[in-house]
């Protein structure tokens, strides 16, 4: 037989397009709906606001795509974000007190965030791989720990960043580069790196292999534990990046920070077409998933048809519908082929 490589290539390209198309179509429909309900939806200010908001969940979800693709799950990201935010503020306030305020203060905070994120990710990864505890349990545990730590450090209230330091830090959330807000830039860069990592490196292939079958991966000379741990570290790094752009927004952190982010991140990943039980990951889909989730909240804010309090309910319906449609289309596709 002949394997026309060009043919294979084209086939594969088309398939990915078709599969990615679902969430994309949903996003476009949502935009049309938003615009018809309130033309302000597509106003420049609102679009840039929407994109900025989606950056938090989006960046975290890119990390979650790796964890889920490799067959894991991380429930701790929301609490982790709150905890890292709190620690950043404590460290920066301490630095302001002892050394006065400067750009260095903010850099110190950022460095602290990166170290904590990577460390927290490593702990999750280490406990699931070397400790052989299920990821669900490990991250349920660390989720509780971080949430309780931030409550403790904030003494049940709110930690606020020193106002001078906040003045220096502000631009990271509020400024734009070439007309695009900085958080959106970070999101774009994270997503691009994530896409390359997933689709163009051995690491991404290993994640998919491990998620499909850990046994096969082990027999195929893949260091399963190491790859798994790296996915959690990536997740921690993504949480850290999201927190770095989140802190200057409000300049504070409390036990209410980042609540339910883990669910939104996982939802974005699943809406985007990544398979929850692992083995198949799509960064592009995740980005769209994050945009869809944010757009829903935004549309509800702009219209009065449905109460804003029902945001969660609408998101829930959309998530279930998205997954149902994906599965349905999978089935239909399969049925159709033999029937021809």
């Amino acid at each position: 037989m002949s394997l026309a490589s060009a043919g294979t290539d084209r086939l594969r390209g088309m398939r990915i397009d078709l599969k990615t198309a679902g969430p994309l179509v949903a996003l476009i429909l949502l935009c049309v709906l938003g615009y018809s309900l309130n033309p302000l939806f597509l106003a420049e200010g609102n679009v840039s606001n929407l994109l900025t908001r989606s950056a938090f969940i989006g960046i975290i979800a890119v990390g979650a795509t790796f964890v889920i693709t490799a067959g894991g799950i991380d429930l701790s990201v929301g609490s982790m974000a709150a905890f890292i935010a709190g620690m950043m503020i404590i460290v920066m306030n301490w630095a302001v007190e002892s050394m006065g305020v400067s750009v260095g203060t903010v850099l110190l905070g950022i460095g602290c965030s990166l170290i904590l994120g990577i460390g927290a990710g490593f702990i999750n990864g280490f406990l699931t791989t070397k400790g052989k505890i299920e990821a669900f349990i490990v991250t349920l545990g660390t989720m509780g720990i971080y949430r309780s730590l931030i409550t403790y450090f904030a003494n049940g209230g709110t930690l606020s960043l020193d106002s001078d330091a906040r003045q220096i830090y502000r631009p990271i959330y509020y400024d734009s580069l070439l007309g695009i807000p900085i958080p959106v830039w970070v999101f774009i860069v994270v997503a691009l790196i994530g896409w390359v990592l997933m689709n163009r490196t051995a690491f991404g292939r290993y994640c998919m292999a491990i998620g499909s079958s850990e046994h096969v991966a082990r027999y195929s000379a893949i260091k399963v534990d190491r790859v798994r741990t790296i996915t959690y570290i990536l997740q921690g790094l993504c949480v850290s990046l999201a927190t770095i752009i989140y802190v200057p927004r409000l300049g504070s952190a409390s036990s209410a920070t980042g609540v339910l982010w883990e669910l939104e991140a996982i939802a974005a990943v699943i809406i985007g077409g990544t398979v929850l039980k692992g083995g198949y990951g799509r960064i592009g889909g995740t980005v769209i998933g994050a945009l869809i989730l944010t757009a829903i909240g935004n549309i509800l804010n702009l219209t009065e048809i449905i109460s804003n309090y029902l945001n969660g309910a609408v998101q829930g319906v959309i998530i279930i519908a998205a997954v149902y449609l994906q599965r349905g289309s999978f089935r239909a596709g399969r049925k159709k082929t033999p029937a021809q």
């Binding site: 294979t8 292939r205 998919m208 292999a209 195929s220 893949i222 083995g279």
Partner: peptide, 19 residues
């Protein structure tokens, strides 16, 4: 169970151990 990733194509399976 140990040899091939059944949901993936020929190519990723072939090269998995030697990426």
């Amino acid at each position: 169970g140990r040899g091939l990733l059944l949901n993936m194509g020929l190519e990723p399976n072939l090269t998995l151990a030697t990426l």
